[in-house]
Design a protein around this nucleic acid. Structure first.
Length: 561
RNA sequence: GCGCCCAUAGCUCAAUUGGAUAGAGCAACGGCCUUCUAAGCCGUAGGUUGCAGGUUCGAGUCCUGCUGGGCGUGCCA
């Protein structure tokens, strides 16, 4: 429908150019928007407003000329000039109802497109170090990163979900020390407890499993505990594998799966860190000072230069980060999205600077970043900072156990990443019946219920009869729903392009609201089959779109509630 | 001090990416179940979009400056 209007406007614009009313060299991007207010029709175009200046005429006059020049179309019932010069289009009922045919024909594919043309895209997210259970912040990253991946897949990209983790550095040494201390029966309150040790109860679980000689499988590794309390290497390897497995169980419970697990240690063993240093030195962007090796990141927009190799010969985290991203580039990902917590935002400039310093033809501003702000968890009107299991933070598992997978995903993904988020457990739980995610799912379940009723009363949906009578969907609420359904593909497109899954959530809430309103006002299961079947078709289309949209969010669409 | 993000109804958040009269849910109040699921609907009330300028036919959205909050500003990750 929208495309039809754009075509009509293009034709009208050409006519005006031919008549010399509009200069021939102007080429405005013709934009048609769905209206918010039904008094403004179904779709509105601002073309006349944009042409006013180049044409040197008042916008309303241009609008009138455009309307005169519009080719006739069965799709348009009425056209009006409104306000400062908007052209409002009223769709004919038959044209509006065509969306149902499209939704039902396309099914699960409705709203998907192939704009990405199979381009390889990598989304890196979560990337938690294996030193403990995933916390709420990781949960937000998991929800947002996975939804962005789903959106990109839905718009034709070939997406790789990647999880990067450090399995070697200082914090892993601390992890090993902590587990070793637990193995020896120490508790965090003991004076002999390691200074930077991890204090959560889960460390005791790891120690116990280690001493029982358990075998754990995580990523592509399988580790059997030696149960030797003095073998620090064995304890470390076991602890890393154990906690990676824990994190994977959390992610699995959350409905998130990764294609690639990338180990920081592999950058060293494969010589990629050394190669990166060598190349940076060769390209002339480094210097030595105070016994350390520095990269002149200030050449690329950083506010101060950064140390790559410390005085003690070890590399800072910054260097493997650059080596890792260079590796991504070499793997052929022209588009890479890093989803991280905003507390790591300072790495953005540095990584990009390091990549530019490599002089490898990597575009400036590569890779893309989506940074999510902090999550605070509230319970009983107070901020919750402690979890029994983790000790110092609220875990993702805590949330899934308390409020459920669907609600947790929805809460974490249905908000803009760049604003801080308050997760109120009381709200998500005690008022769970009024939870937006249930509101949407309920609309889906209601359609399913109507369809079950149709089957049981021997009034099963008749496709041909529905098709023949789609134009009978002329109720105001039915038109609202039809327009809303028609807006779904562009919502997906826009959400994918801007990496904003919350747009899908918002859309679904609007669609569910319109359906609930319709459901209460208009009975579907009427005796007249010529009325009942188009309404059933509308219900089927709504159900399909809710299902498709919830799938993009990784939320289930139950048939009964 | 400097950098990034944020500020919208009492609360949690939206706003078709610059469009017309800023919308939902929760909380409050009043209605609607003998009829397809009341986890719902209808209605009432709630706003100078933090403040002050600017750009534009048009600004919650873009620009500048303030105010307030968060994060960062390691030879930590």
């Amino acid at each position: 429908m929208k495309d039809t209007i754009i075509e009509l406007l293009h034709s009208a614009l050409d006519t005006l150019k031919t008549e010399g009313i509009v200069p021939g060299d102007v080429a405005p991007a013709i934009k048609v928007d769905a209206t918010k207010d039904k008094a403004h029709g179904d779709y509105a175009a601002n073309l006349a407003l944009m042409l006013a200046k180049p044409a040197g005429k008042p916008p309303r006059e241009i609008a009138a000329r455009l309307i005169d020049a519009l080719p006739k179309s069965d799709a348009v019932a009425k056209v009006e000039i409104a306000g400062p010069g908007f052209i409002n289009f009223f769709a004919s009922t038959a044209a509006a109802a065509e969306i149902i045919t499209r939704v039902l024909n396309d099914g699960d594919a409705f709203g998907r497109n192939d704009h990405g043309q199979g381009e390889k895209v990598q989304v890196e997210f979560v990337s938690a170090n294996p030193t403990g259970p995933l916390h709420v912040g990781h949960g937000r990253g998991a929800a947002v990163g996975d939804c962005i991946s789903r959106l990109l897949e839905a718009t034709g990209y070939n997406v790789t979900r990647e999880f990067y983790y450090n399995d070697a550095g200082v914090q892993i040494a601390n992890l090993a020390l902590s587990v070793a201390a637990r193995v020896k029966g120490l508790e965090p309150s003991d004076p002999a407890w390691p200074a930077d040790g991890y204090k959560g109860d889960y460390i005791a679980d790891v120690a116990q499993a280690y001493m029982h000689g358990e075998t754990v499988t995580a990523d592509d590794r399988e580790v059997t505990a030696s149960a030797d309390p003095d073998d620090h290497d064995a304890i470390r390897d076991f602890a890393v594998a154990y906690l990676r497995r824990e994190q994977d169980l959390d992610l699995k419970a959350f409905g998130v799966a990764f294609d690639v697990y990338f180990l920081e240690s592999s950058l060293y063993t494969d010589g990629k860190v050394e190669a990166t240093v060598k190349r940076l030195v060769e390209k002339g962007h480094t210097y030595e000072s105070d016994g350390a090796l520095w990269l002149k990141t200030t050449d690329f927009g950083d506010d101060k230069d950064r140390v790559m190799r410390k005085r003690d010969g070890h590399y800072t985290y910054f260097l493997p980060d650059v080596a890792y991203h260079f590796d991504k580039w070499q793997r052929g990902f022209t588009t890479v999205i890093d989803e991280q917590g905003a507390d790591h935002h300072s790495t953005v400039t540095r990584v990009r600077a390091g990549l530019q310093a490599l002089d490898a033809g990597i575009p400036q501003g590569w890779p893309d970043y989506v940074l999510h702000q902090m999550v605070t968890v509230m319970r009983g009107g107070e901020e919750v900072k402690l979890s029994k299991r983790a000790g110092s933070y609220v875990t993702l598992r805590d949330l899934i156990d308390e409020v459920g997978r669907d609600a947790t995903r929805y809460f974490l993904a249905a908000r803009r990443a760049d604003s801080q988020l308050t997760f109120d457990i009381d709200l998500a739980r005690s008022q769970s019946n009024d939870n937006p995610v249930y509101y949407i799912q309920y609309a889906h379940a209601r359609v399913c219920s109507v369809l079950r009723k149709a089957d049981s009363e021997d009034k099963a949906f008749d496709h041909a009869l529905a098709q023949a009578n789609l134009a009978k969907l002329s109720d105001e609420r039915e038109k609202n729903l039809l327009n809303r359904l028609a807006a779904y593909p562009e919502t997906v497109e826009r959400a994918a392009k801007s990496r904003e899954p919350q747009q899908v959530a918002q859309y679904l809430q609007d669609l569910a609201a319109e359906f609930h309103s319709y459901y209460n006002a208009v009975k579907v299961m009427v005796d007249d089959a010529e009325i009942r079947n188009p309404r059933l078709a509308l219900g089927l289309a709504v159900r399909q779109v809710i299902r498709n949209g919830l799938d993009l969010l990784g939320v289930s669409a139950p048939e009964e509630m």
